[in-house]
Design a binder for these strands. Structure first.
Ligand SMILES: [Zn+2]
Ligand SMILES: [Zn+2]
Ligand SMILES: [Zn+2]
Ligand SMILES: [Zn+2]
Lengths: 158, 158
DNA sequence: CAGAAAATGATATATTATAACATTTCATCA
DNA sequence: TGATGAAATGTTATAATATATCATTTTCTG
């Protein structure tokens, strides 16, 4: 069993640093500006592997002493999602950080209903099954979301 | 190519009648009450193959002369979704009628971004791929949603 | 530095959803 | 049949999520 969800005691600072480094790179390549506000929101999202709502981000920014309004957060989220740096979980109205923003992938998310963490799969079997199903009914795919809710291994066994 | 989406000129009255008959049956089997309000909401949802929002339903009921408040609509929707008679499209916050409420299925929806119609697939390849992916990472599935957006065959070719 | 474009600030409001309590409807059975 | 309790709906208020619009600031470009 591969470990899709990070181990309990993992070095999360490494996750954050790696995510930031990748984000810098993506922004650089795309000639997009990784502004202060965008970096703040991105970093907040990466404070955990859970999906976080726009208003939780807003509250966190406010707690940091900033006077921020909803549009500011939604703009940052729009920027980050369009670059593929964060993804939106439709069934939660919440966002989490992508750990492979450089590699093409459909959205395939495992969402633990117990601990709240989200892990992203890049699974060719699923992608192929979706593409094949679409082809068989003459459907032209623009975007796909696969949201799988349940218990991660940690939560199922502890 | 099988026709997942109904033909333009299909006899939609048949869809509606069949859906109503199936709903009656499911309610009967589940010993659930298919009340006036639930039937009204269900019928409104089945006025097309598009996904419809709670407030569109509310407006339609109001236009019918009823004085209905949001909770009434949401309660009917909760009842209908729990019985599997309608499904919620998470990425649209909207609802559409299930045409196979009697057969077990994960949620696999094709959503046409042009005409707005939603068609449900019951595709074993996709289901198996999801289950296999979950198994391989030790994830216990509780619920799955596959939402595939794009163009239906009609819209892609016309 | 001037001017244009991009980003953010600020205000208002739209959209989606639920909490809480009152009233009505309906099945059950004494 | 009529009391009674459960289920459904009505009613009011409000929470949670999201966007439109215009003003101001920041950054880029020449
Ligand atoms: Zn981590
Ligand atoms: Zn978990
Ligand atoms: Zn039809
Ligand atoms: Zn279409």
């Amino acid at each position: 069993m591969s470990d899709l969800f990070p181990q309990k005691g993992h070095d999360h600072d490494r996750c954050v640093h790696s995510a930031l480094a990748q984000a810098e790179k993506v922004c650089d390549v795309e000639n997009a500006r990784f502004t202060d506000m965008r970096r703040k929101v991105f970093t907040l999202i990466w404070q955990s592997h859970k999906a976080v709502t726009a208003y939780e981000l807003l509250d966190a920014l406010t707690a940091d002493g900033l006077r921020v309004q909803p549009p500011t957060v939604y703009r940052a989220l729009e920027f980050l999602t369009e670059l593929g740096l964060v993804h939106r979980v439709e069934s939660l109205n919440a966002y989490f950080g992508c750990d492979r923003p450089d590699c093409e992938h459909l959205g395939q998310y495992f969402i633990c209903t117990d601990c709240g963490r989200v892990a992203e799969a890049v699974n060719e079997d699923m992608s192929n099954a979706v593409r094949k199903a679409a082809r068989s009914v003459g459907f032209t795919i623009q975007a796909t979301t696969v949201e799988i809710k349940g218990l991660c291994h940690d939560c199922a066994t502890h």
